[in-house]
Design a binder for these strands. Sequence first.
DNA 1: AGTGCCGGGAT
DNA 2: ATCCCGGCACT
Length: 440
Amino acid sequence: MSAVHKSRLGKRSPMGALVCAADGLAEPGHLGTEAGDGAGSPMIGPGCRVKLYPGPRVYVNCCGQECAGVAKQHNHADGEVSVFLPQQGHHAVGSFEEVWTTSAGPPQTSPLPRPVSSNVSMPNGYSSPESVDMDEIMAAMVLTSLSCSPVVQSPPQRDPAAASCEMECAGGELSDSGSSGYWSWDRGNGSPAPSPSIPETDSCLAPAVDEGLDMELEQVLFDEPASRKPKSSGRLAYRCLWPSCGKVLTSVVGMKRHIRTLHLGHSSESEQSRREEDFYYTEIHRELDSAAPAMPCASPPNPPADPGSATPPPSLLSQSAPDRCWQVRSEHLYQTSAPLQVTGSPSASCQWTPSVNVLPSPQTAPFRSRSVSVGEQWIQQQQSASLRPHPASRSPPRGHCTSRRVRGEAKKCRKVYGIERRDQWCTACRWKKACQRFVD
DNA sequence: AGTGCCGGGAT
DNA sequence: ATCCCGGCACT
């Protein structure tokens, strides 16, 4: 079956993307949480595999009454959630079941319109998760429109594999998801190797914080753009999301300059470059950030490397905007690629070559060189016990070398017009070729 | 059996 | 390049 698909991916281009979605990779609405099978149970609570990210406002049962707090840690293994209670001014550690995300009541009784997802590292009392989400969504839309061709400007969709990376790795606030996991305590899901080519993934490494602070402190008092002016100045910092950088500065200008000069390698002040810079740093809360223990990303910083040359990490996904685009823009792959996509895995078609080069940074090169998306790798690893370093080495189980395209679901000329009106068929149908009029 | 279409031959 | 068809895969 799958062996048959490969030859038809070309004209039946949507298939690749559909496979990604159909396989459950994309799960809109489950942003930032790892919900279980229960589609309508995004609630934190017992029996629900929801992962609570730091940042969102949560409520705990404190002395018999509901107390608002900020989720800080969630030890998924122990089921303990650490919540910072601003009103009490201390942290509270409670069981997973005692935390809910709406003020309506405990999780068992109050359906949550959205799972705990606003894991943007925001300061205490910054805003509600929902408002942050809106900002993030808007930013994501802009970034997506910049980074991708128009076809990918659909609402952000997440695949669980990508979400798993978010959970493992920090950063990603500027992604199109708008609710990427900043970090998580769940360490049990394989090795949290960060994606080597994605800037956000390495931001969990936060070196050189102090030096950045020392260097840029004076700038806080001056040229702070209104767009990113922190609501509680002095508490916000900006972390460079460039891989193996993680520099934290206290001013946007300094951070942008840092990214522009050190990473992007140019000093252009154009709008384009500024947006690029926005993409590579994130706003962090210094107290939260410093209070956060070692990030789950324990692996050393990965330089931008060819993903195909390394063994694919088990669950390393990020959801940066370009990366997301790849998940969606899978349909043209067969045209630009060769045998790499010709694999038996149904997900192997999820690959594409971006048509727009918006991020001329070195980071983008590995992106484009990806042969199989990480989500696909995740699925393939789930499906196959044997892990193969190169997707090209996978060959589908096929009876013979010839490949036929799968029979299309669409009605063909023969069915539409009938054999008696064969003259109205498309040329291909008349010639017994793949129908060109009613393509799948 | 009916259908879609690949591969290849004929023109 | 166009036209056609044998034959295979699939439903």
